[in-house]
Amino acid sequence: MSKPKVATCSLAGCFGCHMSLLDIDERILELVDLIEFHKTPLTDIKRFTARCAVGLVEGGCANEENVEVLRTFRRHCDVLISLGDCATMGGIPALRNFVPLEDCLREAYLAGPSVYNPGGDVPNDIELPLLLDKVRPCHEVVKIDYFLPGCPPSADTIWAALKALLSGEPVELPYQLIKYD
């Protein structure tokens, strides 16, 4: 029997959660015995070609591309996990949720104190994915099965959750592994 496939992605995140995943150190050997990485930046596989048992989603949804990727993950993964605070509650990118989009762009590209933009252009290529009005946690866009909070969730947290999941046990994090920071 083939090993269960795991996919990962980073939406509006910083890849810190992926770093934390790699932080499981030598347990990664145990992990690759258990699973096979499918579509993930770790393998550079770009498209889903098979159904995955688990999808790990880092980051929330800040633009339409994030939504597309998240929905694609939902369709191809049996179990979808929000990995980290950005996926769980929007995280740092969600700090813009109190600022109108226009003001946000002005600050980022025109008026911000460290901006050097003599042309005064705000990126507006037709190919650029459009920003959402607000950054959404993943579970407000698709159904999410499990949440691993933390910025990032510790390697132990990710390991504990994956191991439980792959061995068919309930994902119940002990007190020390639930952290919002």
Binding site: D85, L173, Y175, Y180, D181
Partner: peptide, 23 residues
Amino acid sequence: CMFCEKSGNCELQALGYRMGIVA
């Protein structure tokens, strides 16, 4: 919580932890 000075000493957060709230 990720950049709050009170994190770790915050009673709201601590109750979230105590109750096992993940999201």
